[in-house]
Design a protein around this nucleic acid. Sequence first.
DNA 1: AGTCGCCTGGTA
DNA 2: TACCAGGCGACT
Length: 262
Amino acid sequence: VRELREGAKGKKFWSVDVKNAKLLMPSADVFADLLKGVRVLDVVRRGKFIVFVLSNHMRLVIHLRMTGRVMWHVEKGRDKYVVVTFTFSDATKLYFSDVRKFGRVWLYTEKEFEKVTGIHRLGPEPMELSKSDFVEIFYKRKGMLKNLLLRQDLITGVGNIYADEIAFRTGLHPQARMEKLSKTQIGKLFESVQYCLGEGIRHCGVSVSDFVGTKGNLGQHQHYLQVYGRKGLPCYRCKTAIVKTVAAGRGTFYCHICQSIN
DNA sequence: AGTCGCCTGGTA
DNA sequence: TACCAGGCGACT
């Protein structure tokens, strides 16, 4: 979003070329009709959604899901995955592509877009949250740690990699019961959430499989991961082999010595 | 809380 | 060839 803001803020849409209308809401026609001549006032983020604030009181919203990419060029051999091309009046082009087609693009009014996209159901931004508010959300909440961290309606932004990293840093098993944690433990969990997300942001994301920046630049945080993807490798804290299992329906990595189920 | 479906490509 | 993949909504 930071890169998109730098590159797109102030620009005016000239044309839109839709290659795969199925990922666009409400329709390809709406994109073509309503974007021409419209200026990008700002690009912001809400949870995992990219939000273009437009001069016609509409919002262009993109969710990358698994393999979506927003880039200033078409990558070699990936032409067939381009979903939509935005051309600005200065002739620069912005491409949204998606191999698996899970991503979504919406164009709605400022009144409608939150409900249509589901943004209105998102919890608070964890990096802008106080510890006491965080504790209030999770203290005595029934469920497993990882399931609850992944729930975007409680706090937004935590995905599979960061959930594992957060659990490891807190010394808690991903399947620890949240309702059994003390306020002190929840407070420590909060510190881990902010630390892990903060480091991920500082290192410009995790480029372990699909993520790349808008210019093809790779993130660096994959070099700093403590447990995710480290199955069979020695725990950085105790040297015991990291275990991989399935929790919350997702591949889950943890150290069975350092991370307690209580 | 678990499973499936959505899609396709990379890897064991 | 089977299985897995940083997401998420529907369904059980």
